Simulated scan of single mutants.
Amino acid sequence: MSRKELTSLLSHYETSHTSEVHYAPRFVSLLQNFPGCFRRDLVSGHITGSAWVVSSALDQVVLLHHKKLNRWLQPGGHADGEEDVLKVAAKELEEETGLSAYKWITKDVFDIDIHLIPERGNEPAHFHYDIRFIAMAEVSAPLVVSNESRDVRWVPLSAVTEEAGFEESILRMVKKTLKLKASLT
């Protein structure tokens, strides 16, 4: 997926979630006005890619406990100059969970989020412009904890708030997953 394709996808991104409606133009502006937006050295904010991994029954999701942020999140991370964010999401998914047997439910953008990453050491506070894709894997596939995490596991959708709290973007993806499940039954 090229920058041009991503810009087009986000220019036409449709969602019923208010926060995402406001995020889409900010993504497009970043992509059009900042050539280095895929590199983490753009200190105002940069593009990241994530994978929301669901079970085949659409009733569980893979979450990892991020060491630095001390929060439960979906697998994802920095693009480090790679403009194909689907490729970034796949790389991060595999590195952070050990999963290699998965499939993308769609290669369209599943969710977008802009969130502040707090200052740490010499790294100033900055924004992650996170582009999320949805993948499916079998819960029997073994998960591996990476050096960036404290834990990684399958979490029932009904228990996500117990693990991840009331993080708006995580809850939004849970709602989208439940809506997808309902549309398939």
Results as ranks from 00 to 15, higher is better:
S183K: 11
L99C: 07
I105L: 14
L10I: 15
I112T: 08
F27Y: 07
I47A: 06
L58V: 08
E167V: 06
K103C: 04
K103G: 09
P35C: 06
E96G: 02
G76L: 01
P118Q: 03
L178G: 03
A90G: 08
W154D: 06
K67E: 01
E94W: 01
D108Q: 15
L73H: 03
G77C: 10
W154G: 03
S11D: 12
V28A: 02
T97M: 12
L9W: 15
T106C: 13
D113A: 14
L69P: 00
G121F: 03
K175I: 05
D84P: 14
L86C: 13
N33D: 15
D59Y: 02
E163M: 06
A135F: 02
F166D: 11
P35E: 14
Y129K: 01
I131A: 02
D108C: 12
S55R: 13
A79P: 02
S50V: 05
L9Y: 15
T48K: 01
E95H: 11
R71L: 00
V152L: 12
K107L: 13
I134D: 06
A135N: 00
H22M: 05
K87R: 12
T185G: 05
S29P: 00
P25A: 10
A79C: 12
E119G: 03
F133Y: 13
L31I: 07
H66I: 03
K91W: 06
I112P: 06
L180D: 01
Y13L: 10
F27C: 03
V155G: 00
V53F: 13
R3P: 11
I47V: 15
S19P: 02
A135V: 10
E96T: 00
P118A: 02
E163V: 04
R153N: 07
L93V: 11
L30M: 05
T48P: 04
S11G: 07
E148G: 02
K176L: 15
H66P: 04
T106P: 02
K87E: 07
S100H: 10
V144Q: 08
S169Q: 15
K181V: 11
E119D: 11
W72H: 01
E119C: 07
K68S: 07
I105R: 12
K67C: 01
W72I: 00
K68A: 09
C37V: 12
S29T: 13
P75S: 11
I134C: 13
A79K: 01
L30K: 08
L58A: 10
R132Y: 02
I117P: 01
S169L: 12
T7R: 15
V155K: 04
E163K: 09
L86T: 13
A79G: 06
H115Q: 09
L99S: 11
